[in-house]
Amino acid sequence: MAQAQAMTQAAHAVLGKEQNFELLPVQIRGVCESQYCAAALMLAGYSLEICLKSMVIAREGVEGFTKIEKEMHHHRLHDLASFIPGLSRRDTAVLRGLTHFVSWAGRYPDPGSGKEQQVEDVFTLGEKQRVTARDVVDVAARVMQYTSEVVEASLG
């Protein structure tokens, strides 16, 4: 859980620093800014993935987690968060969107051969749900706040 917090702070640091792409050709400055934001969303998504998986470890114990570990070898935040009560369809859409950044959009220029539709899916999902940066922060905060309930239940 400490690693999740460190990753969250890294995402905040990236988003809080204004970048200067003046030295780059004008034609690619916008793309660089977009990719910079995508990298920040990737860090935010990674922090949620770490947090969610650590909650499963806290709930199941190390032995219990070891038994289901292979089922957890993915980045689908919406699936990993399925045990958190009160997540709305919109919250799930936010997590689906962040999954794209964790899986490829924060790391690579495209999702890979045969997965070209995923590029369009990122934009369609965001536009359909009218997802804002505030929505991403709110969902991430609620997911991370649930940690205290999981930890309390595992200790009690």
Rank of each mutant, 00 (worst) to 15 (best):
V26T: 10
L24I: 05
L15N: 11
V26Q: 15
R107V: 09
M144W: 02
C37A: 14
L48Q: 01
L24K: 06
E69Y: 13
A140W: 00
Q9C: 03
A105M: 07
E120H: 12
T99V: 09
P111K: 09
Y36K: 12
L87V: 07
L87N: 02
E71A: 14
G106C: 06
V151L: 06
E127Q: 10
C51V: 02
A140H: 02
I28A: 07
H100W: 13
G64W: 05
Q129N: 11
E69K: 15
V131E: 00
A153H: 03
S103Y: 06
F21V: 12
F123W: 09
I28F: 12
A39P: 02
A58M: 07
T8V: 01
G112H: 04
H73S: 14
S88F: 09
R142Y: 03
K53Y: 01
R107W: 06
W104V: 06
L80A: 13
V119P: 01
H74P: 09
V14W: 05
L52I: 00
V56W: 09
Q145H: 07
P111G: 05
E116R: 14
A6L: 11
R59F: 04
P25S: 10
H75S: 12
I50W: 05
K53H: 02
D110W: 15
D138G: 05
F101R: 12
L98W: 10
T147P: 00
M42G: 08
K128R: 13
A153R: 07
